[in-house]
Write a protein that binds this DNA or RNA. Structure first.
Length: 540
RNA sequence: GCGCCCGUAGCUCAACUGGAUAGAGCGCCGGACUUCGAAUCCGUAGGUUGCAGGUUCGAGUCCUGCCGGGCGCGCCA
């Protein structure tokens, strides 16, 4: 509906003012129903260009603007143009939607390729609630982009090469020795969670005391990282998050990508040696200072591997590269952008989304979380507590750049009042109406008879029409939080309709028309829930 | 000290990249089931959008300065 109106207004403006170019026609939904179904502020945006009063421009646009769908046009306030859609207009529009509901989901991607990297938690401990937020956002974006015609590759970057893996291996090794009665002392940066002991136990059960005799740190590193990564994969699987690709940092070294990247930078004269370390001249590209890429010990830094990794992404021919990072990494952005610029890539293709931290609230107090200290609540704990549907909905109900207080007691206690059930109930209720009709032996095949459309159906139609716009906005801003909000509104509109209008009436045409309407509502609920990864139950 | 994010109803959050009288949920209070599912609906109350300026027809949204909270500023990842 937005789109149709925008086109007509555009045409009218071309007729009137052929010289004006590139005006974007914005169609809004006014705050109150007396102001019409839709409105545009285009007269006001044209005013400075044409050097005319907004109401005068609006007058010219409105004068002679005729359309069989439009019942009335008004000029209001400083120069808004308000459109009132006629019942016949709504009927004709809905007729098109009913015959092909997929039209509601626009093709925005047109096959463009997207690389989306998210979660990428170090395999040094289980996923916690903060990772859950990244997982929910990344996975929902994936589903959203795929639904709107993008080709998306999702990837988890496994940091299996750094110093933290060494510390992990040592931690497990110490716990292993402890199992054989040895006194051990863990250092500050060793991992102290219970899961470390479990891994040590597993090694003991499989290999006995073999590693007491031969100290094989490499084995412990590899075993522990694999073990933890498998747990992460399971957690994500339960959380309905699937990755197309698991990318190992270590493989960048094995395949020579890292060395190659150094050579490229070297050939561009962008690295130098100082105090035994190798530096990259990132300050030439907007970073506040140069950065070390190879330590004086000869070890490469994490940053170097990451440059190599992002180079591969850019060379992969993606139109859009999305990274989802925790907000505590924001200081890292100029650095990686500098590197991409230095390599001659168009860094505009890279979008980095930051997720603000998740604070966990328990007994009304924040809980401290630290992987090293082993104090955290895992994603799995939360899912077991409130369920996947509620957890995902809860995460997505907030903009990613605002802090999230995850109140465990509230999530647990009020899980029945979570808005997710409200939306799911609307879906189940619609299914139930069809079941009920069949049970009564009624013909419940939806069919649309325009003359049977009543005033009571219009608000629901308007809400249906909003879906496309919500999807567009979510893709444009890469912020899918609008979707659960919209679904709640759609569900509300439906529940309201349900309460005042009986669907299964005696009149066949009326019944079929109403069924047509709620079938489209059901379609949107199902598609919308699918995008956010929440189930749409037939019964509950 | 410098940089990034956030301050909106009692609480948790929206507000269509500058639009009209700022909206939901939870909580409080009061109504609606012999009829398609009451996990629902209807109604009441709740606000100087942290503060002070600026930009313009118009600001929760943009610019400046404060105040408050969070997070960064490694040859860590």
């Amino acid at each position: 509906m937005h789109e149709l109106l925008a086109q007509r207004v555009q045409r009218r403006i071309r007729e009137l003012f052929p010289d004006v170019e590139g005006v974007e026609i914005k169609i809004d939904v006014p705050p109150r129903p007396e102001m019409g179904d839709y409105s545009t502020n285009v007269a006001m945006t044209l005013a400075p260009l044409l050097k005319m009063a907004p109401r005068e421009i609006a007058g010219k646009i409105v004068d002679g603007f005729s359309d069989r769908w439009i019942e009335k046009i008004e000029i209001a306030g400083p120069g808004f143009i308000n459109f009132f859609i006629s019942k016949e207009g709504w009927a004709e529009w809905f007729s098109g939607i009913f015959s092909d509901p997929e039209k509601l989901i626009p093709d925005l991607g047109k096959g463009r390729k997207v690389h989306l990297e998210f979660v990428s938690a170090n395999p040094t401990g289980p996923l916690h609630v903060g990772h859950g937020r990244g997982a929910a956002l990344g996975d929902t974006l994936t589903r959203l982009l795929r639904a709107t015609g993008f080709q998306v590759l999702t990837e988890y970057y496994i940091n299996d090469a750094g110093r933290q893996i060494t510390k992990l291996g040592e931690s497990v090794y110490l716990r292993y020795r402890e199992l054989f009665g040895e006194e051990i002392t863990l250092e500050e940066d060793h991992y102290k969670g219970e899961y470390i002991i479990e891994i040590a136990r597993k090694i003991r059960d499989l290999y006995g005391d073999r590693f007491i005799r031969e100290n094989d740190l490499e084995f412990f590193k590899k075993f522990a990282a694999e073990e933890i990564l498998n747990g992460i994969k399971e957690d994500l699987d339960i959380f309905r998050v699937k990755f197309d690709s698991w990318f190992s940092e270590r493989s960048l070294y094995d395949r020579g990508v890292v060395d190659e990247t150094v050579e490229i930078l070297k050939s561009k004269d962008l690295i130098y040696e100082d105090e035994g370390a190798i530096w990259f001249r990132s300050s030439l590209f907007g970073d506040e200072k140069d950065r070390v890429i190879r330590r004086s010990t000869g070890e490469p830094t994490y940053f170097l591997a990451d440059i190599a990794y992002h180079r591969l992404k850019f060379e992969g021919g993606y139109d859009l590269i999305i990274d989802i990072w925790g907000a505590d990494h924001h200081g890292y952005e100029p650095r990686i952008r500098a590197a991409m610029k230095a390599l001659g890539f168009d860094e505009e293709r890279l979008k980095i989304l930051f997720i603000q931290l998740v604070s966990l609230i328990k007994d009304g107090r924040p809980v401290s979380m630290s992987t090293r200290a082993g104090e955290f609540v895992t994603l799995r704990d939360v899912v077991e507590e409130v369920g996947v549907d509620a957890a995902r909905f809860f995460y997505l109900l907030r903009r990613n750049d605002s802090h999230l207080d995850f109140d465990l007691d509230l999530a647990r206690k009020k899980s029945n009042e979570n808005p997710v059930y409200y939306v799911q109930y609307a879906h189940a209720r619609i299914s139930s109406i069809f079941r009920q009709g069949e049970k009564k032996g009624l013909d419940v095949k939806p069919e649309f008879f325009p003359e049977k459309l009543g005033e009571g159906e219009i608000p629901l139609l308007k809400k249906i029409a909003d879906f496309s716009r919500i999807i567009e906005q979510s893709v444009r801003d890469l912020s899918p939080h609008r979707i659960p909000f919209y679904l709640v509104e759609l569900a509300r509109q439906f529940h309201q309709y349900y309460n005042e209008t009986r669907v299964l009436t005696e009149n066949v045409e009326e019944r079929k028309t109403r069924l047509a309407l709620i079938e489209v509502v059901k379609y949107i609920l199902r598609e919308g829930l699918e995008i956010i990864g929440v189930e749409a139950p037939e019964k509950m």
